[in-house]
């Protein structure tokens, strides 16, 4: 009886301890999610009573000619970010883990971009990306006889330009994760590889990469989820231009909800958000199914 009482009291105090967290999470994370599910089947101006419209919002989004553009652009961004952005932190980490002196300095340099507020970084890079021959990057390229490049001013160049900045901004965080994982590689395995006649690349291929496999799989799916939700770069650099060549899915969500003011279409915005969330959840599920064996 008394132990039951203690246990009940124990779980009561657990609940009390949890309560602030539950409240904050419930109010600021879960309640908005529930609300957006409700909103996606409503027409509302946030003042008068919302009207139930069934699946109209989803239909309207799917019929929007800009949706295909946005999905294509997002996939293009994700692909470019994968090709350029995914190997860069890995290479940096492998090189840095081999450096013997001033290790801290390199970590600091790699991590510094992550510390700069993203909006500030974008404004800075906008300045670098000036399309005139006198722009920062273009004058550097000019010195070696290249350019000028129309960085953000050309539909074909705009997206790669965004990816370069995004890679610069995000690589540091991933480098730190890899560095931490690299510490766990037993040094005697490198010695053994060396005895077996492996060169630097051989050691990386046969020792380092197998050890990082689990981490690499996680960072890959995190990167895919992150790039599928890219918003800041296209919003601040180009506002989706030129000619919608950098319009991404999340920027389209933002446009539905806010850009047309008076047309503030929260129904369509939440409908598209939900579709994106479901697509990403399914993708993650399939990904983990497919790679389950490999990551063990």
């Amino acid at each position: 009886m008394s132990s039951l009482l203690t246990r009940a009291r124990g779980s009561a105090s657990t609940l009390v301890f949890l309560l602030p967290m539950l409240l904050v999470f419930g109010l600021f994370s879960w309640w908005p999610i529930v609300r957006s599910v409700i909103m996606s089947v409503q027409q509302t101006n946030l003042v008068t009573d919302p009207e139930f419209v069934g699946l109209d919002n989803f239909r309207a989004v799917l019929e929007d000619p800009l949706l295909a553009t946005a999905v294509q652009n997002t996939l293009w961004f994700a692909l470019l970010a994968l090709v350029f952005g995914y190997p860069v932190p890995l290479i940096l980490a492998v090189i840095m883990s081999d450096v013997r002196r001033a290790k801290g300095l390199y970590s600091l340099l790699a991590y510094l971009p992550v510390v700069i507020p993203p909006a500030v970084a974008v404004l800075l890079w906008r300045f670098f990306y000036d399309a005139e021959p006198t722009g920062v990057f273009n004058s550097i390229l000019g010195k070696v006889g290249l350019g000028p490049v129309p960085w953000l001013e050309d539909p074909a160049w705009a997206m790669p330009s965004l990816v370069i900045e995004a890679t610069w901004a995000a690589a540091g965080g991933t480098v730190i994760i890899y560095l931490a994982a690299l510490v766990s590689v037993p040094p005697e395995q490198y010695d053994a590889a060396e005895v077996d006649g492996a060169g630097v690349l051989g050691k990386v291929w046969h020792v380092t990469l197998p050890h990082l496999r689990g981490i690499m799989l996680i960072t890959l799916i995190l990167q895919i989820i992150g790039t599928a939700q890219v918003f800041l770069e296209p919003y601040l650099f180009t506002d989706g231009g030129p000619n919608n060549s950098t319009l991404t899915v999340l920027l389209l969500v933002y446009r539905y909800a806010f850009q047309n003011t008076t047309g503030g279409d929260y129904g369509k915005a939440t409908a598209l958000s939900l579709m994106l969330a479901v697509a990403l959840a399914l993708l993650s599920l399939v990904y983990f199914r497919l790679t389950r064996r490999w990551s063990e």
């Binding site: 001013e153 050309d154 539909p155 231009g241 030129p242 000619n243 919608n244 446009r255 850009q259 047309n260």
Partner: peptide
């Protein structure tokens, strides 16, 4: 205006 933005941008960048 949003529709026309894209038209102007296309002419100025292509």
């Amino acid at each position: 205006y949003a529709i026309l933005d894209a038209v102007v941008q296309k002419v100025l960048t292509d």
